[in-house]
Computed example of a mutant assay.
Amino acid sequence: MAAPTTGSEDTPPPARVRERPSRLVDISVALLLLVADAVIVVVDVLLFVMVGMGRAPSPHSPPTASARDVPVVTWLVVWGLPALAATGAVVHARLRMPFTAVTQGLFTLACVLLAVVWTRMLLA
């Protein structure tokens, strides 16, 4: 006859709990991404100003460009950056890195605001 089983043999092993990175690593990554995000936002604003000035109609010429003249790749770039930023924020939140997740969340908000501004300029 088989020996009686105890309750511990039938239960599966506990699921592995993902270890949280140290606060020092989290803050270091957040600061590194903050610098990179600031560079991206500054370049985006400079491009916005340069493209906006280039698209401004001359007072002596009739307007020739329309919203349909904007290539699809431009829309992918304008709205792809906020999508990538949001993905980064979710990934860092899943990795249990709160400082980095908040930094990337704020960057996502800045990217969405800039995408709305770009869209308004391109449709004008």
Score class of each variant (00 low, 15 high):
48 F>E: 08
93 A>Y: 01
80 G>M: 02
74 T>C: 06
9 E>I: 12
10 D>P: 01
45 V>W: 00
86 A>F: 08
30 A>D: 05
51 V>Y: 10
49 V>G: 03
108 T>C: 10
51 V>S: 01
31 L>M: 08
40 I>K: 14
62 P>A: 04
36 A>R: 07
70 V>E: 03
60 H>F: 15
39 V>F: 14
59 P>N: 07
56 A>S: 13
26 D>V: 05
80 G>D: 02
33 L>E: 11
37 D>L: 11
38 A>G: 09
31 L>W: 03
37 D>Q: 12
90 V>R: 13
102 V>M: 09
96 R>T: 02
96 R>A: 01
17 V>S: 05
46 L>Y: 08
26 D>M: 03
19 E>N: 07
61 S>V: 13
61 S>R: 15
27 I>V: 15
103 T>S: 09
36 A>D: 08
67 A>D: 05
100 T>L: 02
35 V>A: 09
75 W>R: 05
33 L>Q: 09
58 S>H: 12
71 P>Y: 00
43 V>F: 15
92 H>W: 10
106 L>W: 03
100 T>G: 02
103 T>Y: 00
87 T>P: 05
45 V>L: 07
30 A>P: 08
102 V>R: 07
105 G>Q: 05
8 S>I: 15
14 P>M: 07
44 D>Y: 11
82 P>F: 10
43 V>E: 14
78 V>A: 02
33 L>T: 11
38 A>D: 05
27 I>T: 13
22 S>V: 01
73 V>P: 08
92 H>P: 03
69 D>R: 02
108 T>K: 04
35 V>T: 07
99 F>D: 10
81 L>W: 14
14 P>S: 07
96 R>E: 02
9 E>V: 14
87 T>R: 09
27 I>F: 05
80 G>E: 02
11 T>V: 15
110 A>G: 03
81 L>I: 14
80 G>A: 07
105 G>K: 05
105 G>C: 05
44 D>Q: 11
36 A>Q: 10
91 V>R: 12
83 A>N: 00
87 T>W: 09
31 L>K: 01
94 R>P: 01
61 S>T: 14
99 F>I: 15
35 V>R: 05
43 V>P: 06
71 P>T: 03
24 L>T: 11
52 G>S: 01
107 F>H: 13
48 F>W: 12
45 V>H: 02
27 I>K: 06
83 A>K: 00
69 D>G: 02
97 M>F: 02
53 M>K: 14
67 A>C: 04
50 M>P: 03
11 T>H: 12
58 S>P: 08
37 D>M: 09
44 D>G: 14
80 G>F: 00
38 A>K: 08
87 T>G: 15
20 R>H: 04
57 P>V: 00
21 P>S: 04
43 V>H: 13
81 L>V: 15
56 A>P: 15
9 E>Q: 09
79 W>F: 12
39 V>K: 11
98 P>S: 06
67 A>I: 11
